[in-house]
């Protein structure tokens, strides 16, 4: 048991981070090089101003007409993403690990806040899941991968919550939490979760074309 824990705490964590960052760099480099060869328009029409303009409208909640048309989905989506990124990044228990390993630390969430946010992530996932099943167009669009990535996100948060609450079997939960978190991290660059770093790219392009060439809004 302790061995596996050590493995998860050490080499696997390292591995996950390396795959995560390495994967992102690899995917980004590949797509940017590919654009050089086959999609020169992406560079030719790049406009920093309009790219930023477009980005801003789409990272501010309700910044686009599309988001305003679906208020519940938009609220859940923003709450979900904020918590999804916020919790792992500012969780006291995580910072401690960084402190131990690298002697670096930063601001942390209170335990209570982290738990509330975790619940938000989990409830959002439930919402997404139900929506995928209930809403006909989304149901039609959804493929197995869409459901699997939901599960991928749920696992570390559910186990993390369990561990944090100290419920029965929390040691196992902690271990599962670490393993599933590492799995999530390592898979981000290679699944649809890569939308996290493709988002800026597609928006930069859309914003540049719409703004600089076509003189129109894209939100």
């Amino acid at each position: 048991m302790y061995d596996i824990y050590a493995l998860a705490r050490g080499p696997l964590a390292w591995g996950a981070f390396i795959v995560f960052f390495g994967g992102i760099i690899y995917r980004l480099a590949a797509i940017l090089l590919e654009a050089r060869k086959k999609d020169h328009v992406v560079y030719a029409y790049f406009s920093p101003y309009y790219a930023m303009r477009s980005m801003l409208h789409w990272i501010v909640p309700f910044g686009s007409r599309s988001m305003r048309q679906q208020p519940i989905l938009t609220t859940v989506t923003f709450a979900f993403h904020i918590c999804l990124i916020g919790v792992p990044l500012f969780l006291f228990a995580h910072i401690i690990l960084f402190k131990e390993s690298f002697d670096i630390s930063w601001w942390t969430l209170s335990g209570m806040a982290a738990q509330v946010m975790t619940v938000i992530v989990l409830l959002s996932c439930v919402y997404f899941f139900v929506r995928r099943i209930v809403q006909p167009d989304v149901r039609y669009l959804s493929s197995t991968a869409d459901y699997l990535i939901l599960l991928l996100v749920v696992l570390p948060f559910a186990t993390g919550f369990w561990a944090a609450r100290g419920w029965a079997g929390f040691e196992i939960a902690t271990l599962l939490h670490m393993l599933s978190g590492e799995l999530l991290l390592a898979l981000i660059p290679f699944t649809k979760l890569s939308h996290m770093f493709f988002f800026p790219l597609t928006r930069i392009y859309a914003g540049s074309e719409f703004g600089a060439v076509r003189n129109a809004k894209d939100w």
Binding site: E34, S66, T77, R132, D137, K192, S194
Partner: peptide, 24 residues
């Protein structure tokens, strides 16, 4: 192979099947 460039790939990989576009 020849014409499915970066946009093609980015679009296909990035679509989250969220349905925001449906109502458009």
């Amino acid at each position: 192979r020849t014409e499915g460039g970066a946009r093609f790939k980015a679009y296909l990989n990035t679509c989250m099947s969220c349905g925001y576009c449906s109502g458009a």
